[in-house]
């Protein structure tokens, strides 16, 4: 077989599958960019008119559009934009371009985005570091003591936290942990020169809020994936080999349960990056979510596009990661016949 397929057949099937997924991810990202660009193109309204006001003379608007490059044909602008992204240049923000024609105070999108993205990733990592192990621990122990009071409590509590809206959880935490006990600050408006531990301290409440919001989903999937396997003949075999309940779950069920669990984890981690605007607003946290919302209200198209591309890339990357883990935890794929 190997000599027939050339180089490709020599690759381990897992490597091949991962490369395939990676390729698919890139194609998806390309399609997303296309949809993103064209849908913004079709949005009603015009940045020129929005900035200059309805009363502006058509010539002024035209001149303004020309300055921003908005008069060029769509495909030209698309490839210009795409080419820019590939070289790390997302264009310049529209805002800051005065209609007065004075000095150009606009900034590159990258410059706006980068610190915000760093903040968002910091918050997401903090929430992930707390919530993923917590969810796994709760899920595994709930499966272990299935049907017990502990199981029911964990289920009820996680369900309660997921059922409240995020802002409510956030305000509740502020009330208890900030107003009453003064343990943590209620605002997390971190600046660029805050040191690491200060950052951790300031972001504690938003991270905790996010943890409470996402832990239920991951915990329940962990529990369900393990329980789903408990009826398998090989679990009964393990019992008949004298394995204890925890040995059965950790050594015999969990290794076969990773695929569904990591899919849900990836989904929730992606949410931590792209879906936290409410939490950012409540804690005045300077993340990407707020930036995007601001950009949408001011019709700052390059910034919106930049944020959206980052969100799409996050989703694709995390799902790719989940796929890879699913593949390498499946012995049928990892060790072909």
């Amino acid at each position: 077989m190997a000599n027939k397929g050339g180089v490709k057949a020599v690759l381990h099937p897992v490597v091949r599958t991962i490369l395939q997924r990676l390729g698919l991810g890139l194609i998806t990202l390309f399609v997303v960019s296309l949809i993103l660009f064209s849908s913004i193109e079709f949005l009603p309204g015009d940045f020129g008119e929005a900035v200059l006001g309805q009363a502006a003379l058509p010539e002024t608007v035209a001149a303004f559009r020309k300055e921003l490059g908005l008069d060029l044909p769509v495909h030209e602008r698309y490839f210009d934009w795409l080419g820019g992204i590939l070289t790390g240049d997302m264009g310049n923000s529209f805002s800051g371009r005065g209609s007065s024609g004075g000095t150009d105070r606009s900034r590159p999108v990258i410059e706006l985005l980068a610190p915000r993205l760093a903040n968002t990733l910091f918050l997401a990592s903090m929430a992930a570091i707390i919530s993923v192990p917590l969810a796994l621990f709760l899920g595994i122990t709930a499966a272990l003591y299935r049907g017990s009071i502990y199981d029911r409590m964990v289920n009820a509590m996680t369900l309660t936290t997921i059922s409240f809206p995020e802002f409510f959880v956030a305000y509740l935490l502020i009330l208890v942990l900030s107003s009453f006990t003064k343990l943590f600050p209620s605002l997390a408006n971190i600046g660029p020169d805050v040191d690491f531990w200060e950052r951790v301290y300031l972001t504690a409440l938003p991270a905790l809020t996010l943890t409470l919001v996402i832990v239920a989903h991951m915990m329940r999937m962990t529990r369900a994936a393990i329980i789903n396997l408990m009826a398998s003949p090989y679990i009964e075999m393990a019992e008949l080999k004298g394995a204890s309940k925890s040995e059965i779950i950790l050594q015999h069920a969990l290794p076969n349960a990773w695929a569904p669990i990591v899919t849900v984890i990836a989904f929730n981690l992606a949410y931590l990056v792209v879906g936290v605007v409410v939490v950012e607003v409540v804690f005045v946290y300077p993340g990407v979510g707020q930036l995007m919302v601001d950009a949408v209200t001011t019709r700052d198209v390059p910034v919106v596009q930049g944020c959206a591309m980052i969100f799409a890339a996050t989703y694709i990357l995390l799902n790719l990661f989940a796929d890879i883990i699913s593949i390498i935890t499946n012995p049928r794929l990892l060790h072909p016949r």
Binding site: S232, P233, Y234, E236, M237, A238, E239, L240, K241, G242, A243, S244, Q251, H252, P255, N256, T329, P331, R332
Partner: peptide
């Protein structure tokens, strides 16, 4: 449990289903 898998052992009908696929 201490007897199972040490002094009394079990051989199941469907070996394919009774081995853990992960090990």
């Amino acid at each position: 449990r201490a007897l199972r898998g040490s002094r009394i052992a079990y051989v199941a009908q469907s070996a394919a289903a009774s081995f853990n696929p992960a090990h």
